[in-house]
């Protein structure tokens, strides 16, 4: 009897821990600012506008690209598909324009996707890291990465 109770207690604790972790993870996710939902578009961004968004503590996403890069072209397609499906707007910024911005402190190679939360970079895709390699491979894998941080609206 004691053994059964002990097993049940352990199981219960595991379930509670699991639910707690799930809850905390959900807590960490957040919505972009309202203006980025409802329309699907990729808006060109320059360093001045980026600084303004940071000053205003906005929550948004930037796609860093390079026109001559085949990998940028693939990721562009996945991002376009994602924003069309979920009616969301992202910014897009030329790799050559990120110098002297906060993005350059993190992103060394393109293409990349940078997530800002309240004016701060909280995550980005690294083209030079195996950890992110799969997230460049398909729109589904990209979505998996994005939704670790951001919440979608129906």
């Amino acid at each position: 009897m004691k053994k059964i109770l002990l097993t049940l207690s352990i199981l219960l604790l595991a379930v509670i821990a699991f639910l707690l972790i799930m809850h905390l993870q959900k807590e960490q996710s957040f919505y972009l600012d309202d203006e980025y939902y409802g329309n699907s578009s990729l808006i060109e961004l320059d360093s001045e506008k980026l600084e303004a968004l940071e000053r205003d503590k906005k929550t948004f996403i930037v796609f860093v690209y390079q026109p001559l890069c085949a990998a940028s072209y693939d990721l562009d397609n996945y991002i376009t598909e994602f924003t069309n499906t979920y009616k969301m707007s992202f910014y897009k910024m030329l790799f050559s324009s990120i110098k002297d911005t906060s993005i350059a402190e993190h992103v060394k190679y393109c293409p990349s996707v940078v997530i800002y939360h309240k004016g701060k970079v909280i995550a980005y895709l690294d083209a030079n890291s195996d950890k992110n390699a799969t997230h460049y491979e398909s729109v589904e894998n990209l979505k998996k990465w994005l939704t670790k941080y951001i919440l979608l609206k129906d």
Partner: peptide, 10 residues
């Protein structure tokens, strides 16, 4: 070969 898509793609 380096990590990430820079390695696998290029």
């Amino acid at each position: 070969i380096t990590e990430g898509i820079r390695g696998t793609n290029f």
